[in-house]
């Protein structure tokens, strides 16, 4: 079709780009707020910082209504199954922001109970570092995610299907492996 036949106010684009543009500007976050970062998430949504300016203020606490999970705060071993279940309940397309040092890597809590980064167990799209990150930084993260969606998104989410590897580091670091082996050996010797 020649360009001259196109009337005013009609734009030519690919369906993928149009869908991604629409999606990126109406993110509905699901705040999985467990600890300190949750308070900064509240601060981001409230009066001074006003997340609504970026189209991501519709916090919905039901995972069925959301497409952006913000994991704010440390996730411990008792909570991780809950996190995974909520992630599975969210409809496609969905994204995940890991907010704060504890959610990204475990942060200062290198202890027996804290999962050392949620990306080991659920896929993460974007990391916002800081302990806790300032609201400006969380907004920068959300804008970066919007950019990512705009530039890489497809209508039926084929880009997600390609990510068959876990996002995080290999599940165990070396000393963790050694400890597990020792514990297993001890168990075997007891039995």
């Amino acid at each position: 079709m020649a360009m001259k036949d196109v009337p005013d106010n009609i734009f030519m684009t690919s369906l993928d780009a149009a869908a991604s543009w629409a999606r990126s500007n109406s993110l509905w976050p699901m705040p999985f707020a467990t600890a300190c970062c949750g308070i900064e998430l509240m601060a981001t949504a409230s009066s001074r910082f006003d997340l609504a300016r970026f189209g991501a203020e519709v916090m919905r606490f039901s995972p069925r209504q959301c497409d952006l999970m913000i994991v704010a705060g440390r996730v411990v071993m008792k909570m991780l199954p809950v996190l995974q279940r909520i992630w599975l309940q969210m409809p496609e397309p969905k994204w995940c922001i890991s907010m704060g040092a504890c959610a990204c890597t475990g942060g200062v809590f290198d202890t027996y109970a804290v999962v050392q980064g949620v990306d080991r167990f659920i896929p993460v799209d974007l990391y916002v570092p800081g302990c806790p990150p300032r609201p400006e930084q969380l907004m920068a993260g959300i804008i970066a995610l919007q950019d990512k969606i705009k530039h890489g998104g497809t209508l039926n989410g084929t880009e997600f299907g390609k990510r068959t590897q876990p996002t995080g580091p290999t599940p165990y670091d070396l000393d963790e492996l050694i400890r597990i082996r020792e514990a297993n050996e001890k168990l075997i010797s007891i039995n």
Partner: peptide
């Protein structure tokens, strides 16, 4: 750092 309990979970890929 525990005895590996904190990493004893299934891994979900995208």
């Amino acid at each position: 750092k525990g005895r590996g309990e904190r990493h004893n979970f299934p891994v979900l890929t995208r």
